[in-house]
Design a protein around this nucleic acid. Structure first.
Lengths: 301, 301
DNA sequence: CCAATGCGGTGCAAAAAATGCACCACTTGG
DNA sequence: CCAAGTGGTGCATTTTTTGCACCGCATTGG
């Protein structure tokens, strides 16, 4: 949509931090860019950039303008999606920000199931930790977020929530595998592998350990839950993950057991969107499917 | 905002029903207008007008586009309001659709009170019946609606609600004025003046009368409650209105008495906005003031 | 301390886009 | 069957936008 070109340029300038660099990025002359910005500010009635030596940066008014642009863009693409729907095309795009736990089993199955019915719909899956996921929604970069234990709940509208207890994952021959429920102290007493601090699982572990004046002291700390899941195969230690990211393996080489709720309350896996936003058709439908799937998953567990 | 010019033209064409007439309205050539529309449709990816002989009219896709434009416009003016607020100007505009009952006493006082603190804020007061008021919100023509007994509540978000019993209004020397509460049958047995069918007061009266197999048969039927209020001074008949639109007059020439709740349940006076919409600063603040005023009014009564 | 560099902004001419005018093809109602 | 209405189009003209060459200024590094 050509009429939003000025906003695209504003966004580029905000990103680049300098008009000249933004001009290069957008394949345009610095002078032309400069004049468009100035003209916009005239028309808008206020400056939107702070001119400092060495470049420019958005002022609060500019932040509002940029937000307006993103909201407009989002609404426009929603409208285009609905129009495409009218003409029976059923195309569209869903972008979702999610925690790592959803990557191996849950999301692939749900996306495939959705695409089986709507082959014209494409997906972006953005792996984000719990705080990033919410920023993702706020900037309209993702339509949906499916995250474990989100941080700030402002502008985050909960669509569905299911509890997920932190589980211990380990080889079947690990001593703790014999119990059906594991105490936190047993975890801390044995060698363990843990995710790094920005993740919900680690946050819950740290919090619970501190309450018992213990500390989580992992022999391997990583940002990758896939790493954790596979590491326990190579050294007989324990790892942590929530059940939706786990599955009993055929040869029963890896097992998982919940940590006792006395020690560590279950966290929440939350499907959410930006508050008040009307989602594109495809995203709204996919959100409904996810809700149903999460409910079924919870009842099956 | 120049970048929305094409949308303004689209709106004009939709309103005029013909490109040539719209072109005149917008002081532009039909050819230029025609090409802008065609270019937009190209870019947008779908036709938004149905071309019939004798003119054009919006198709469903066009309705969506027009709605997008209005939403964008509303959001933009909200942003401009917030920016003005940032620079300390405190200006803005509030548009409110309301029932007639609010016109004589309640709204003038509240608007004046608001403007005493924020002289830069201007107001539009649009008198609308209960169904029009909601359309007004849906088309972003008004920010707020304050109506008695709204019809459809879809897309209508209730901000505040107070009950309002239908009252009989009459001269002090009318026989019914001696009672403190009036039965519906007494109203129907005496000559009465009533509002026409689209109004909430009449709707409640009709409904209650029909339940008792009676009918409302006014000697004067009017769209104007002001007319009703003044008519009872000239002929000794009764009229109807809700208390917020009434006030005891100094010389006690006109009095009002509630109709018994056994016969006619109290209706609702509802302050609302469009569902999910973020209101401009001034409107949001005014809505808060109205909420408070309504609460105080209810407690005082 | 001064030249070099990078910044935003501006005058002016060239390029691009939008517009107005004249006109076409078509439908409709008297 | 024609007059009056409609949307659409080719072409010259006007308006807007852009690119180029600069300016003044601040920061930086030798």
């Amino acid at each position: 949509m050509k009429h939003l070109q000025t906003f695209r340029l504003i966004e580029a300038v905000a990103r680049a931090g300098s008009m000249r660099r933004a001009a290069e990025d957008m394949n345009i002359t610095a002078s032309a860019l400069n004049r468009r910005i100035n003209r916009f500010e005239d028309e808008f009635g206020a400056e939107i950039f702070e001119r400092g030596s060495g470049g420019v940066r958005l002022n609060p008014a500019g932040e509002l303008v940029l937000h307006h642009y993103r909201a407009t863009l989002s609404d426009l693409s929603r409208v285009q999606g609905q129009v495409a729907d009218l003409s029976g095309e059923r195309r569209g795009h869903v972008s979702i920000a999610c925690s790592q736990a959803l990557l191996p089993y849950f999301l692939p199955r749900e996306i495939a199931r959705y695409r089986a019915e709507h082959p014209g719909v494409t997906f972006s899956v953005n792996v984000r930790d719990r705080s990033q996921a919410e920023q993702e929604l706020a900037s309209y970069s993702s339509d949906l977020a499916l995250v474990f234990e989100p941080v700030y709940l402002v502008d985050f509208e909960v669509v569905h929530v299911i509890p997920q207890a932190v589980n211990v994952v380990m080889r079947a021959d690990h001593p703790l595998a014999r119990k059906s429920e594991i105490r936190l102290r047993d975890c801390l007493d044995t060698s363990h592998v843990a995710p790094s601090a920005q993740y919900g699982v680690r946050h819950l572990l740290d919090f619970a350990a501190r309450r018992g004046t213990r500390r989580v002291s992992p022999v391997v700390e990583t940002e990758s839950f896939e790493m954790i899941r596979h590491y326990v195969l190579h050294e007989n230690v324990i790892g942590f993950q929530i059940p939706i990211g786990l599955r009993a393996i055929d040869d029963r080489s890896v097992v998982y057991r919940p940590i006792s709720e006395r020690d560590l309350p279950a966290g929440n896996l939350i499907l959410g969107q930006m508050r008040g936003r009307t989602l594109p058709v495809a995203s709204a439908r996919f959100a409904m499917q996810l809700s149903t799937a999460l409910r079924d998953y919870e009842q099956a567990a």
